[in-house]
Simulated scan of single mutants.
Amino acid sequence: MTDAASQRTPQQALAALLAQHAPRSLLVVGASQFPALEAFAQAHPACELAFAEPGPLPPALAARRFDLALLVDCLEHLPKRQGLELLGGIRNLNASRLALLVDLPAAGWAATDLFSLALQASERFEREGQVLSLFTYDLKDYKQVPDWLNAKFWANPENFGKYWW
C-alpha cells in the first residue's frame, strides 16, 4: 500500500472485493450495514450471510467456517485486546480470507498491529479529514515461497521433491 489515497470509495473497494472472491458463505462483523453488502446480497441470493456484532463471535458462528469474513465498523467499538482476539480467531478458525475496513486513529490501532496478524494493507481512503484503511488476509497469499527453496540449493539436487522425512 502506498501513502496515496485511493481513487475509489470504500464501498467501491468492498464491492470489488466481494465480486472478486464471490463467496458462497460470508461472515460480516460490524456495528452497521453498508451499501456494498446490500448490493452483493441482492445480486447473489445463494450466498449465505451471517452477521455478528463487534465482540466475541456467538458460539453458533464461532463453530463455522466461511469463505470470506468482512469486518467493517468493528474495531472502533472494541478494546484492543478483544479486537486482537477477534481478528486472530476469525483468521485462524473461521475464514481463509479476511477483509477489514478500519479507521486506525479512531480505533486506537497502528498499522503494525495489523501487520503482526499477517494482514496486508490494501488501500487507504480519505474524506473530510477521516482516513479509512482496508486490510486483507488471504491464506493462499500469506507466505511467498522463498527463492532459496529449490533444487539449486538442495544438498542432493537429484532428490529435491522426492523424499519427505
Results as ranks from 00 to 15, higher is better:
Gln82Tyr: 06
Gly161Ile: 06
Thr136Cys: 00
Gln12Asp: 11
Glu53Lys: 07
Leu117Trp: 03
Arg97Asn: 02
Gln42Leu: 08
Ala106Trp: 07
Tyr137Phe: 12
Gln120Cys: 10
Gln82Phe: 04
Ala4Ile: 13
Ala121Met: 03
Ala106Arg: 12
Leu93His: 14
Met1Asn: 11
Asp113Ala: 11
Arg24Phe: 04
Ala118Thr: 04
Gly161Asn: 05
Ala63His: 13
Tyr142Arg: 13
Gly89Pro: 08
Tyr163Gln: 11
Gly108Leu: 10
Trp165Lys: 08
Ser116Pro: 01
Ile90Asp: 08
Ala46Phe: 05
Pro146Gly: 05
Gly30His: 07
Glu85Leu: 15
Ser96Val: 01
Pro10Phe: 12
Glu76Lys: 05
Ala99Phe: 00
Leu139Phe: 03
Leu84Arg: 15
Arg65Ile: 13
Leu71Ala: 02
Ala118Leu: 09
Pro10Val: 05
Ala155Val: 01
Leu70Gln: 02
Phe66Trp: 01
Gln20Tyr: 01
Cys47His: 06
Tyr163Gly: 08
Ala95Gln: 01
Arg8Phe: 04
Tyr142Ile: 02
Ala110Gln: 10
Ser122Arg: 11
Ser32Pro: 00
Gln130Asp: 09
Glu38Thr: 10
Glu85Met: 14
Leu27Val: 01
Phe40Arg: 00
Asn94Trp: 12
Asn159Glu: 14
Phe153Lys: 11
Tyr163Leu: 06
Leu132Pro: 04
Ala151Gln: 08
Trp165Thr: 14
Asn150Trp: 09
Arg124Ile: 09
Glu158Gln: 11
Leu100Tyr: 00
Gln7Glu: 15
Leu139Gly: 02
Leu87Lys: 05
Gly55Val: 09
Lys152Thr: 11
Gln33Glu: 13
Ala62Val: 12
Met1Gln: 15
Ser122His: 04
Leu14Val: 08
Phe66Gln: 03
Gln130Arg: 15
Pro58Tyr: 06
Phe135Tyr: 13
Ala15Gln: 12
Asn156Gly: 00
Ala13Pro: 07
Asp113Ser: 15
Leu57Thr: 02
Val28His: 12
Pro79His: 14
Gln20Leu: 03
Ala31Cys: 14
Gly55Ala: 08
Arg24Asn: 12
Asn150Met: 09
Ala155Lys: 14
Ala19Trp: 02
Glu123Gln: 15
Leu114Ile: 03
Asp103Ala: 13
Arg91Val: 01
Pro157Trp: 06
Gly83Asp: 13
Val29Cys: 05
Ala63Lys: 12
Ile90Asn: 10
Ser133Ile: 00
Arg65Leu: 14
Leu100Cys: 10
Leu101His: 00
Asn159Asp: 10
Ala36Lys: 10
Gln42Ser: 14
Pro58Phe: 00
Ala121His: 05
Lys140Ala: 14
